[in-house]
Write a protein that binds this DNA or RNA. Structure first.
Length: 982
RNA sequence: GCAGGGGUUCCCGAGUGGUCAAAGGGGGCGGACUCAAGAUCCGCUGUCAAGCGCUUCGCAGGUUCGAAUCCUGCCCCCUGCACCA
């Protein structure tokens, strides 16, 4: 069963160090003690096998996946956040009856292990495995609900043999290519890099400058999937910015390759353009200095030396110079002319430093009338500027001194059939004519390049090929896989080159074709290859006869991984490669699915306060806190910055778990911000989450211990819990975890406490409430939830429980009424408080009573009629007044004005406030239409009100039936009584 | 320059046309409990003349009976790509 057949240094289930908990101790015998309960439930979960899932066609599946970690040592807060999100979702979905696949593994090949090995004189294998053990025990301590049977490590030959197997498959399909090409070389990493791994001409890993080098390298032809990779972005749920980055990276542009024959020669310049409609405005052609034609055209001519100057300058250009160069566009005339294929005009050929050799054809047709860059260039070198597009139909182009770059109507073409065409029609017409003359073709250009995946490094999957002098480069036979990395290699500091290349035992082999002596390929694969299909391997991780079985893959991957969580830093590289792999493997017949991830959530960063100099705009190491800025001397402020070793502002998850327990850390992480937002670490915030957990805990204990036979708040609390459950479930399903946690860990406590203050609940109700509440606590704080669930007397663990995710509310009206009444009470108290200060100012001596005057009967009557009429779509503007005149209350001349005013407030509204019939919610409408007796309700709750307001007497009567204190009778409305103090 | 995302009250952060002076949390202030501290609980936390008052959701306009929310322009911040033809 173990995935680690080869290296059996797998540790016990538990971290070797069992730490003592150091939390603050509370009082009483029902202390919240996370250390004890967390360990206890983790063991029970493991024993129960509840997180081990297998294909079950009868259940809906949910594949929840986190970007697996590179095992660099300890787990950090970013990991904690990533996996806390995933674990909550996995647990929530299990609770909802899904068959959940939730696996974990390690992306364990890569340079850091190799470098670490050099430092200590060991082998990367050992470094990697001890790191894996460390991170695994951290993961277990957090209580994440992985199916550990499926654990995998990419550096294990039981995994990477399938890398090799797939590579050979791709080779069969013609997707693998070995070719010599200019590649990105990083001196400090001693290897080539993929295009995706070069940022601003620097290595993504070490930030050293990258240089171009011609080398024979292995490529995967990702460009064959460019269109599908781009088009299918529309059908998957990725964040907008990730989609934008991928679109940008693939960079598809439609246009044409146009042939410009060189005057007095046989060569043709092929120029790619997205604007064939401007062809009649071409006044010169520009080549990249690296373009092979440049050399040919100038060699031996008077133009050679100035060309060489330009080419040399470009060749040794550093990143810094390139930025400067933006302001300095340079070009040199190459002494020759090319023919415009449609007009026959001869235009000069230039080499320009701004033309990129690797994009398009490395040649540009220049249209200074309609491209600002060409325009600037033409002015500088005194080349004619011709306008061939008009901004307005049927008019001559405007003379603006700038290039008009938009789409327009063709003019000045000089040929029949073009003038007057616009935009895409114009482009199509030009392409058609070019094609008919064989002078060009409509083409699509991509920015995306094939994936260069060979690396001159040791700690990666060996590329399974053999170099034979007679037979050439031939694949290793499938039966000989895996080609394993040797373990008898010593790494030392200062060592350079690839140790594989000098390992005799590895390199020397025989040719499978002709049996003569041959050498193994010593390049290894980019580690992004490993992570491009691990999600498929997880679907069938223990398979030792194939990468994965189709039935397993198709079941779990159907529609893609349902929720994939990870950092935005993989927006282009990993996510693009993985999408490509899934499609390529589909075409190899291994699976049916085309897109690996149906929903991607990029979790935000975990930030922490860091010293910051506002003047220099620089963040400093936390050591400098309180010190002056090292560069400008001013005193440093503070700013939130991503947790990093270099700033020293990291917080150790281990220490936090030790101090507060895993549940508190999880709650803090989930409550701190919704998954996609950035969040700030704060010591006081985690403290307060710990307090909150203890509040939850003591409310639960109180609930369990409740023994009363009757409760005043039974109806209300249960109505609340039904509504909360549904809201919670909806938030969880939407991955709005912060909202979900707010309901489960905050609002549910407040409701419980409110019910206690308002008179308490019966034992039956308390238990029913807890039965609803505790499962809500489970996804975010599973240990606490299990503990309380069992205290409640449940025999089945929550991890094995399935619940209905929508609570049916049988009597909606009744719930509305009960909830509405309570809400009404809260509002009355709030309003009373807000007028209290005023009253104090107007009254001598201490206040002794609050006087509440509810609305007159005629107001209630009108209001409930208005609601009914509104529900029947009555046109109040049209018939409102007429209706009013039929009403008895309107007949009394004294109150007529009040009635008018009230009517307005109810149906139309005044100022910025809409009429109450529009703003009342379901609860209010229920109360008003069912003639809720406010006087009776307040009277029966007078004790509570007097306690809440700290006042002796509460007097309540309907307006008109008692003294009109402070003239509040007039302004009373249904549900908004007039409130005064005395 | 292009693309994507933002700017909400002391702070974080919810909020896509009226129920919004704006959830929730943090912080601050006050009160209860306590010898005291901590913990816990209750309240306050734009403004004033206390009202269906006034002002506030980056700035300036606009649409609307009504705008934090919709439209236009501008400013600023973050992220990615970038001499891409």
């Amino acid at each position: 069963m173990s995935c680690f057949a080869v290296h059996s240094i797998r540790p016990l289930n538990w971290p070797s160090v069992h730490r003592r908990c150091t939390y603050v101790r509370g009082k009483g015998m029902n202390d919240y003690n996370p250390a004890t309960i967390e360990e206890k439930w983790q063991e029970k979960w493991t024993k129960s096998g509840a997180f081990e899932s297998d294909v079950d066609q009868s259940k809906p599946k949910f594949y929840c996946l986190e970007m697996f970690p590179y095992p660099s040592g300890k787990m950090h807060m970013g990991h904690v956040r990533n996996y806390s999100i995933g674990d909550s979702m996995a647990r929530y979905r299990r609770l909802a009856g899904f068959n959940v696949l939730y696996p974990m593994g390690y992306d364990s090949f890569g340079m850091p292990a190799e470098n670490a090995a050099k430092k200590i004189g060991g082998h990367p294998h050992n470094v990697t495995w001890s790191n894996i053990e460390s991170i695994r025990s951290d993961l277990k301590r957090m209580g994440f609900s992985y199916d550990w049977r499926r654990e995998l490590a990419t550096s294990d030959s039981t995994y990477y043999r399938w890398n090799q197997w797939i590579f050979l498959k791709f080779h069969e399909m013609g997707l693998v290519e070995r070719r010599t090409a200019p590649v990105n070389w990083c001196d400090s990493c001693d290897t080539v890099l993929a295009n995706e791994q070069v940022k601003n001409n620097r290595c993504w890993r070490c930030a050293d400058e990258v240089r171009q080098k011609d080398m024979a390298q292995w490529f995967l032809k990702m460009t064959e999937y460019a269109d599908e990779l781009l088009d299918e972005l529309e059908n998957i749920e990725f964040p907008e910015n990730v989609k934008a980055m991928q679109r940008n990276w693939i960079g598809r542009s439609h246009g044409a390759d146009i042939h410009f024959p060189i005057v007095g020669g046989h060569d043709v310049i092929k120029a790619f353009t997205t604007r064939p409609d401007t062809i009649f405005g071409v006044t010169f052609v520009t080549l990249a200095p690296e373009h092979p034609l440049c050399e040919q055209l100038v060699s031996g001519t008077e133009f050679e030396s100035q060309y060489r100057d330009l080419a040399d300058e470009c060749a040794k250009m550093s990143e810094f110079d390139r930025i400067n160069m933006l302001r300095d566009k340079k070009g040199v005339f190459l002494g020759r002319y090319a023919t415009n294929p449609l007009t026959g005009d001869e235009v000069p050929i230039y080499a320009g430093n701004f033309v990129v050799a690797s994009y398009g054809t490395g040649a540009v047709m220049a249209v200074p009338g309609h491209d600002q860059r060409d325009h600037d260039f033409a002015k500088k070198y005194d080349i004619p500027i011709v306008q061939v597009l008009s901004e307005e139909e049927g008019k001559d182009p405007k003379q603006t001194g700038r290039a008009f770059e938009g789409l327009g109507w063709m003019v000045n073409s000089g040929l029949d059939g073009f003038d007057g065409l616009h935009g895409n029609d114009a482009k199509a017409a030009v392409i058609k004519t070019l094609e008919s003359k064989s002078m060009g073709t409509g083409t699509i250009q991509y920015r995306l390049k094939d994936w260069l995946l060979s690396r001159q490094r040791f700690w990666g999957t060996p590329i399974p090929f053999i170099h034979c002098e007679k037979c050439g480069v031939i694949p290793t036979p499938i039966a000989d896989l895996p080609v394993e990395l040797p373990l008898d290699v010593v790494f030392t500091e200062g060592q350079s080159g690839n140790p594989l290349a000098s390992h005799e035992g590895f390199v020397n082999t025989t040719c499978p074709n002709c049996n003569s002596a041959a050498k193994r390929e010593t390049d290894t694969m980019d580690t992004f290859y490993d992570s491009s299909w691990y999600f498929l391997r997880f679907s069938d991780a223990m398979n030792d006869s194939a990468p994965f079985d189709k039935i397993n893959a198709d079941y779990w991957m159907n529609g893609g991984v349902d929720l994939y969580i990870g950092g935005i830093e993989h927006a282009v590289m990993h996510l693009l490669y993985a999408r490509f792999f899934t499609k390529a493997l589909r075409d190899a017949g291994l699976n049916d699915v085309s897109e690996p991830f149906s929903r991607l959530v990029c979790q935000g960063m975990v930030n922490a306060p860091t010293p910051f100099c506002a003047d220099c705009n620089v963040e400093h190491h936390v050591e400098l806190e309180g010190a002056p800025c090292p560069s400008c001397g001013k005193s440093l402020g503070t700013r939130s910055a991503k947790m990093s070793k270099s700033l020293g502002n990291t917080v150790s998850p281990e220490i936090m778990i030790e101090k507060y327990g895993a549940d508190t850390v999880r709650l803090f992480i989930l409550f701190g911000a919704n998954p996609e937002a950035g969040m700030d670490w704060s010591d006081s915030a985690i403290e307060s989450n710990f307090r909150q957990i203890r509040n939850v805990h003591s409310a639960l204990i109180q609930g369990i211990e409740t023994q009363s036979n009757s409760g005043l708040m039974d109806e209300w609390l249960l109505a609340r819990s039904r509504a909360s459950w549904n809201n919670w479930s909806q938030s969880m399903a939407d991955v709005s975890l912060r909202d979900g946690v707010m309901i489960s860990h905050f609002e549910m406590v407040s409701d419980w406490q409110w019910a206690q203050r308002r008179g308490g609940v019966s034992q039956t109700t308390a238990r029913e409430y807890l039965n609803t509440w505790i499962p809500m606590l489970y996804p975010a704080t599973p240990h606490l939830a299990e503990e309380m669930w069992s205290s409640l007397g449940n025999q089945t663990m929550l991890c094995q429980t399935v619940l209905e995710m929508e609570h049916t509310i049988s009597d909606n009206q009744q719930d509305s009424r009960v909830l509405g009444q309570e809400e009404y009470l809260r509002r009355v108290i709030d309003r009373a408080r807000s007028v209290r200060e005023l009253a104090e100012r107007h009254t001598q001596g201490p206040l002794s009573a609050v006087i509440i005057q509810t609305a007159h009967d005629w107001k209630k009557d009108l209001a409930s009629q208005a609601i009914r009429m509104h529900q029947d779509n009555f046109d109040f503007k049209e018939g409102g007044n007429k209706f009013l005149q039929t009403q008895q209350c309107f007949q009394n001349e004294e109150t007529k004005g009040d009635v008018m005013q009230f009517w307005r407030a109810i149906v139309v509204g005044q100022k910025k406030r809409r009429g109450r019939i529009h703003t009342w919610g379901e609860q209010e409408i229920t109360l008003v239409s069912n003639d809720f007796d406010e006087v009776q309700f307040i009277a029966s709750n007078a004790n509570f009100i007097s306690e809440a307001l700290g006042i002796e007497n509460v007097e309540v009567y309907q307006a008109g039936k008692g003294e009109d204190v402070a003239g509040k009778a007039r302004s009373s409305l249904p549900l908004e009584p007039g409130i005064a103090w005395r």
